[in-house]
């Protein structure tokens, strides 16, 4: 089976006050097959969001490579990766456009994803209803709670009906009931529509709901003397 995403020995480094922060010291090598649901589990500051950015082409690793459908995309942009696999991303921080209503935000995302105009209204209606956003579809994101803005992002990503859904800590900012709904929703999406899901989480219970898991290791700091110290 061809892999949707494959990373080989990916390492990322950042300058920090304690020295060079090295994420994934041994290198992250993982493979996400078509129809897979992979959860990346790690603590705070271990590089979960960075790995999402590397997968999406928003950050470049200092070592290693990323492939989408066996094409090396390590140096390619998110847009070029989307051309290989229809991808939707949900980041940790809500990203809705502040000057557009909830509904207009979804319209814009669907239009950028190339969804035909005639299908957009129906898809948006479904997604908004599912996430309980139908009553605030004409509201602007700035007037909404963090949890509601998070749901806008989820609705936007799912309305696109992506082949690959990349989702960074999906239940951050969500209340208990929305959290309880979301993971079964992702599993259903994966099982029924065959959507490939790449998810990060800090919660082992959430990660256990995925088909496969990858555990990240804590980062290391490289001091100026090139001594390696654990976090």
């Amino acid at each position: 089976m061809s892999s949707v995403i494959e990373t080989r020995s990916v390492v990322v480094e950042y300058p920090s006050v304690k020295g060079i922060l090295r994420l994934y010291d041994q290198g992250v090598s993982l493979k996400v097959d078509q129809g897979d649901f992979l959860a990346v589990l790690g603590g705070s500051g271990w590089g979960k969001s960075t790995l999402v950015n590397v997968i999406l082409g928003l950050e470049k690793p200092i070592h290693g490579s990323v492939s989408f459908r066996d094409h090396d995309v390590t140096r390619e942009s998110f847009v070029k990766r989307c051309a290989l696999i229809k991808t939707a991303a949900v980041f940790q921080r809500p990203t809705a456009l502040p000057q557009m209503t909830v509904s207009q935000n979804l319209h814009l995302a669907l239009s950028l994803a190339g969804v035909p105009r005639k299908d957009r209204d129906e898809r948006i209606k479904e997604a908004l209803a599912f996430f309980g956003l139908d009553k605030i579809e004409r509201s602007y994101p700035d007037g909404l709670s963090a949890g509601q803005r998070r749901r806008i992002d989820l609705a936007r990503a799912l309305a696109v009906k992506p082949e690959l859904l990349v989702i960074d800590e999906p239940t951050g900012d969500l209340d208990g009931s929305a959290t309880n709904l979301l993971i079964p929703l992702l599993r259903g999406l994966n099982r029924n529509q065959g959507t490939t899901i790449f998810m990060t989480t800090a919660l082992p219970r959430q990660a256990s709901q995925a088909k496969h898991q990858v555990h990240l290791r804590p980062p290391l700091y490289l001091t100026p003397e090139n001594r390696m110290i654990g976090d």
């Binding site: 928003l58 942009s77 847009v79 991808t87 980041f91 921080r93 990203t95 456009l97 000057q99």
Partner: peptide
């Protein structure tokens, strides 16, 4: 915020 949203929606630089 606009730029982050547009990238997240699949827009290019």
């Amino acid at each position: 915020r606009e730029e982050l949203a547009l990238f997240a929606y699949g827009g290019s630089g």
